[in-house]
Amino acid sequence: MRSRCLVVSLASLWYRQSFFTYAMVGFALFTTHNSHALAEGTFTLTSASFRAGDTVDAAQVFNQDDCKGGNRSPQLTWRDAPPGTRSFAVTMFDQDAPGRGWWHWAVIGIPAKVDSLPENASSSGFLKKLGAAEARNDFDTDGYGGPCPPPGKPHRYIITVYALSTADLRLAQGRPALMFDHEISTTALGSARIVVNYGR
Rank of each mutant, 00 (worst) to 15 (best):
C5N: 13
L6P: 05
V7E: 14
L13I: 10
Y15P: 04
R16I: 15
Q17V: 15
F19L: 13
F19V: 14
F19C: 15
F20I: 14
T21Q: 05
T21F: 10
T21W: 15
Y22Q: 13
F27Q: 12
F27D: 05
F27I: 14
F30M: 13
T31I: 14
H33S: 12
N34E: 08
N34H: 06
N34C: 08
A39N: 11
E40V: 10
G41P: 00
T42G: 04
L45A: 01
S47F: 03
A48M: 04
S49I: 04
R51V: 05
A52C: 07
T55S: 11
T55A: 12
A58I: 13
A58H: 05
F62E: 06
Q64K: 11
Q64A: 08
D65K: 12
D65Q: 14
K68E: 01
G70M: 13
T77E: 10
R79L: 15
A81N: 05
G84N: 09
G84D: 06
F88M: 05
M92K: 11
M92V: 10
M92G: 09
D94H: 01
A97C: 07
A97E: 08
A97Q: 12
G99Y: 14
R100K: 15
R100T: 04
W103I: 05
W103S: 02
I108T: 02
V114A: 01
D115G: 05
D115H: 08
L117I: 04
P118K: 03
S122T: 03
A132N: 01
E134C: 05
R136Q: 03
R136L: 06
R136V: 06
R136P: 01
D142K: 04
D142I: 10
G146T: 00
P151W: 14
G152A: 12
K153H: 07
T160D: 07
A163I: 05
S165K: 11
T166N: 01
T166S: 08
R170N: 07
R170V: 07
A177K: 12
M179K: 12
F180S: 09
S185I: 09
T187N: 12
S191C: 11
R193G: 08
I194G: 00
N197H: 12
Y198Q: 08
R200A: 13
R200G: 01
